[in-house]
C-alpha cells in the first residue's frame, strides 16, 4: 500500500513538472527579479548595491516624475472606465442582436472580431492616417460633404485625443466581449425566457430580471480582463501619441512612463523602472482581486 501511495503523488508530479518548470522560469523568476532590481541601485548595467525602498521614494518624491506618474495613473483609469462602458455595452448589444439573427451569425461574429487579430500598434497607425486632418480620408470626406468646419486635429487636441483613443480601442476589442456575452447568452436555457414571456410581454423586465443576472459571471470576467488590459496599455497610446503619450500628455499611461524610464539616459534606469513595474503589478493584482470579490458579491445579490 505505501508504494501505491507514493505513486499517487509521483505520477501527477511527473506530468506537471515540464509546465511548472516553464512557469517558474518564465513567469515567477522574472517577477521576483524585477522586484529585487527595484531595490537595487544601478549604474548602467552595473549593480551598485541594495537601497531598500529608495527607488520607490523617488517615484513619489521626484518633482517631475511624480506628476507624470499620477497623470498617467488617472489616464489609465479614464481609459479603463471609458473602455468598460463603451466597449462592453456595445459588445453586449451586438451579442444580443447577433443572438436574435437567424442567418449569418458566424459571419457577423467573424467580421466584428477581426480587428482584434491586428496588432494595436498597426491599429493605432491606421487610425492616425485615417484621422489625419490634412491628408486623411475622414477629413476629405467631410470636406466633400461641405462640412470642412467639422475637421479637427482629432488626435492632436488633448481634449479630443483621449476619448478618440478610447473609441479606437473599443473598435478594436469590441469583438471580445461580444463573443463572451454571446456564449453566455447561448447558455441561458430557452425555457427560462419562454416562461418569463408568459409573465410579461415587455422586453426590458425580462432582460433586467432574467438575462442580466445570468450574464453576471460573464460581465465579471469581461470587467476584470478589461481592467488588466487597460492598465497594461502601451501599444495604442504609443502609436497614437508617441513615447511621451501625446498630445501634451493626454494619452500618457503607466506603460509609457515605464518605457521612458527604462530606456532613459538615467544612470539608475533599471532600478527606478523596476520599482515602477513592481508597483503597477501590485496595484493591478490587488484591484483585480478586489473587483472579482466585488462582482461575485453583486452576482450573489442579483441572483
Amino acid at each position: 500500500m505505501p508504494a501505491q501511495g507514493r505513486n499517487h503523488w509521483i505520477t501527477p508530479l511527473v506530468f506537471v513538472t515540464p509546465a511548472l518548470v516553464l512557469y517558474l522560469a518564465f513567469t515567477i523568476v522574472p517577477l521576483i527579479t524585477v522586484f529585487f532590481f527595484g531595490m537595487q541601485e544601478f549604474e548602467g548595467a552595473a549593480r551598485r548595491g541594495f537601497v531598500g525602498f529608495d527607488n520607490y521614494t523617488r517615484l513619489i518624491n521626484s518633482p517631475t516624475l511624480a506628476p507624470q506618474i499620477w497623470q498617467a495613473f488617472l489616464n489609465n483609469w479614464a481609459f479603463f472606465l471609458g473602455t468598460l462602458v463603451i466597449q462592453n455595452t456595445l459588445g453586449l448589444g451586438l451579442a444580443i442582436l447577433i443572438a436574435r439573427t437567424d442567418g449569418g451569425r458566424r459571419f457577423f461574429q467573424t467580421i466584428i472580431a477581426i480587428p482584434f487579430l491586428v496588432n494595436p500598434l498597426v491599429v493605432g497607425y491606421v487610425w492616425t492616417l485615417l484621422l489625419n486632418p490634412n491628408f486623411g480620408p475622414v477629413a476629405q470626406m467631410l470636406d466633400q460633404m461641405g462640412r470642412p468646419d467639422l475637421i479637427r486635429p482629432w488626435l492632436g487636441e488633448p481634449a479630443l485625443a483621449r476619448p478618440i483613443t478610447i473609441l479606437i480601442n473599443a473598435w478594436q476589442w469590441v469583438g471580445f466581449p461580444m463573443l463572451i456575452f454571446g456564449a453566455a447568452l447561448g447558455a441561458i436555457p430557452g425555457e427560462i425566457t419562454e416562461a418569463a414571456r408568459l409573465d410579461s410581454e415587455r422586453r426590458w423586465p425580462i432582460f433586467r430580471s432574467i438575462t442580466l443576472p445570468l450574464l453576471m459571471p460573464a460581465i465579471g470576467t469581461v470587467t476584470v480582463l478589461t481592467f488588466i488590459g487597460c492598465f497594461n496599455a502601451f501599444n495604442l497610446q504609443f502609436a497614437v501619441g508617441g513615447v511621451n503619450g501625446g498630445p501634451a500628455g493626454a494619452n500618457d499611461v503607466l506603460g509609457l512612463v515605464f518605457y521612458r524610464l527604462a530606456f532613459s539616459g538615467d544612470m539608475n534606469a533599471i532600478g527606478v523602472s523596476s520599482a515602477l513595474a513592481t508597483t503597477t503589478f501590485a496595484f493591478v493584482m490587488v484591484v483585480a482581486l478586489f473587483l472579482r470579490r466585488m462582482l461575485a458579491r453583486i452576482e450573489e445579490a442579483v441572483t
Binding site: S62, T64, N244, A248, G249, V257, F263, S264
Partner: peptide
C-alpha cells in the same frame, strides 16, 4: 539627452506641444 523624465529634453518637447495645443 534621454527620452524620459526627468530629462529636460522631454520637458521641452511636452512644453512646446502643450503650447501649440493651448494646454
Amino acid at each position: 539627452f534621454g527620452v524620459s523624465a526627468p530629462a529636460p529634453y522631454a520637458a521641452l518637447m511636452n512644453a512646446a506641444q502643450s503650447l501649440l495645443a493651448d494646454a
